[in-house]
Design a binder for these strands. Structure first.
Lengths: 329, 329
DNA sequence: ATACTTCATGTAACCGGTTACATGAAATAA
DNA sequence: TTATTTCATGTAACCGGTTACATGAAGTAT
């Protein structure tokens, strides 16, 4: 591997001059520049990013901490972040935290030691004091963490009300909700939206709340149970995976979707188009969330002012077969 | 941020001694070590990885290049790589190539400049000369690239024969194959397996080969077309997404799965359990593939000998409703 | 003619670690 | 008692870039 000193020697100039050519700053004579560029080409010289990082204290690298990339919500988010950061010549270190505080903290530490220029974080866990001692730009994604950091989330509360009202409008009156894990903030907000909408509709009945953990299997079991115990004609699942679980439970009991039980999910992951019947869902602008978070982070890194600190993106009702009006009795 | 010199000063020793304590090499007096550790704690000193990397030429970071993380085959693979590398204290830079030669080359270049210790590559494209000039350990994953690099793949050919024979055994005689894109090596191998098995069964008919591009939508359209033109009673899809496309096409035409047309996919992604009927598939040990690739890479990085260079992992037939024997006429 | 810019380039310190080498004390061997 | 090891620590070069500062030539304003 050629170094800047090799280039300097070959071109008959000092390293400073080579550096000037490389970074296009300072004065360099045209002829000299030509010689330097030739030397660079001849030696196939590529500047060592690590040396540059050490001096400049900026690595053109960011950290992205997600709970679990194999959870189908995250790949698109990660992809968006990578795409945008790539445009700005940043590279992305991917970290899976499994929502574990310990892993998150370890990763934060490692990322800092590697001089990442910023971190995008998807978590509920990190407590204020821990995060605030981080002297690296941070953007919080998908889950509202706390005040001080810029954040990008979707309108969980509003989306939940939308889903609930939709079920009501197609004729459901006994609308159950499969709740996500209570330590996940957005799951709680969705529950709140459901509860408030149900109260407003005069349909609230706490027995219609089914506990889920965002996983298909557990949701399926829970719904099987619930369907036996209570009269239910609509299910609003806290995420799409649980909606599939609900779908399977309903079908297993020989009930029809949406005729007997209508189902709507939440997130809008591609999966919802693959089931039969296709699932209605509240679609979050997943890609856009990732892209915005990335753009905000770049701005913070570059020290530019943010027009806005907290982004709450609108969600959208996607009506598919699992809640089709005409198909309900 | 405290540096090693701050620690040295506080502990009243030289930087060399601090470094010795940090790296547990060389002689250090017990008392001295204690003082140094106290200073480290007091200053909350964390060594600067970048400086270390510059000198040692090893960054404890690897690059992972995949076509597209939002393709549902890859999240699990990526997760496996990250998990294993994490154990060995490596960090993973994720790159999406979209199978584009240009992006791959750019990423390779950037990764090298960042002194990554190794690269895991999922590609068909990179030509021999380009890759061989890379002086970083490389492991090829999922797709056989060429001889010189260690590789981890699953038995595509064998899996395809297995799938085809399975359809035969449950009674299918007009077995179609939805082929993946011809520039993807594993798609070609799956096709070869299908073709050879069909020939051996005396069922080969090239009109039964349907062109797909690994995407659901395109496969659905192609299958709709094919079902109208030819008599087909079984479909072996080159991947699971296309199997879902086939399922939708068959259902749209009012045919039953598996009674009229049996369907089997390939890959074994979680999605196959979410459809109705659930999809039979040839399951690749996705997580294991990623994990093995990561372990091989670590060995190469550490200069240890590999027991084996090319790993071809066995695949497994997962029989679900879409090919259930009893349910076929 | 003198002073001040602008242009062009080089020297060397610096970023924050690691380590080869030097130095010397204490312990052990001959 | 002297020679050799082992233990303990420090000095300074090095990794490969960047840049503050110095130097000097050429151009131009006064």
């Amino acid at each position: 591997m050629a170094t800047i000193r090799d280039v300097a020697k070959l071109a008959g100039v000092s390293v400073a001059t080579v550096s000037r050519v490389l970074n296009q700053n300072g004065y360099v004579n045209e002829e000299t520049e030509k010689r330097v560029r030739q030397a660079i080409k001849k030696l196939n010289y590529k500047p060592n990013e690590v040396a540059r990082t050490l001096f400049k204290k900026t690595s053109k690298t960011i950290g992205l901490i997600v709970p679990d990339i194999s959870n189908p919500f995250f790949p698109e988010l990660v992809r968006a972040v990578e795409d945008v950061m790539n445009i700005y010549d940043y590279t992305v270190i991917l970290c899976n935290s499994d929502e574990k505080n310990e892993k998150e903290k370890e990763y934060m530490e490692v990322l800092k030691q590697k001089y990442v220029d910023g971190i995008i974080l998807t978590t509920n866990q990190l407590e204020l004091d821990e995060v605030s001692e981080i002297n690296v730009p941070v953007v919080v994604l998908d889950r509202p963490l706390n005040h001080s950091f810029p954040s990008v989330i979707a309108d969980n509360y509003g989306g939940a009300r939308l889903a609930t009202r939709h079920l009501y409008e197609i004729g459901c009156r006994r609308i159950a909700h499969i709740q996500g894990p209570s330590h996940v903030v957005n799951a709680v907000e969705r529950f709140n939206g459901y509860r408030d909408e149900m109260k407003e509709l005069g349909l609230w009945d706490e027995r219609l709340v089914i506990l889920g953990n965002y996983q298909l299997k557990q949701a399926k079991e829970a719904v099987l149970q619930a369907l036996k115990e209570y009269d239910i004609d609509g299910i609003f699942a806290g995420n799409d995976a649980m909606a599939v679980g609900a779908l399977k439970a309903v079908q297993q009991l020989g009930l029809r979707v949406p005729e007997d039980v209508a189902i709507i999910g939440y997130d809008g992951i591609p999966l919802t188009e693959m089931t039969t019947p296709e699932l209605s869902t509240i679609s979050q602008p997943i890609y856009e969330m990732g892209a915005i978070a990335a753009r905000i982070l770049v701005k913070k890194i570059e020290g530019k002012p943010l027009e806005q600190i907290h982004y709450v993106l609108p969600v959208e009702l996607i009506e598919r077969q699992s809640t089709r009006k005409g198909e309900r009795k």
